[in-house]
Design a protein around this nucleic acid. Sequence first.
DNA 1: CTGTTGACTGCTG
DNA 2: TCAGCAGCCAACA
Length: 109
Amino acid sequence: MANKDLVDLVYDLVRKVPVGSVTTYGLIANAVGLKSSARLIGYIMNHAHDAYPSVPAHRVVNRNGLLTGKHHFKKSSMQTLLEAEGHVIVNDQIQDFKNKLWDPMSLLE
DNA sequence: CTGTTGACTGCTG
DNA sequence: TCAGCAGCCAACA
């Protein structure tokens, strides 16, 4: 098992986010060891469109549960995708966000 | 090689 | 409570 690039590691982690749950940039950054570099996650997710298999970037939001990256979804709206998975979006924000939040560290443990 | 940018977060005033 | 600033790391010009 060769060491993957940081980008691939983030992709793989996001793909493992369970349906009906969401995670945050900060938690992902922490899970890959970057801890304070949530911005990198955002930058990496920008490239996620070119990643294969496709990365469910719509399950990744900022720590407030706000759909900060929805503007980057060209085909389908981020909100639509989340609602299709059972999430409730109001004012670009996930309702009951804390209850739906999934910590990637729990997978690594 | 150097500087800028970015789907963020946390602290400080 | 709200607004502003600094920090973090990688990719691109």
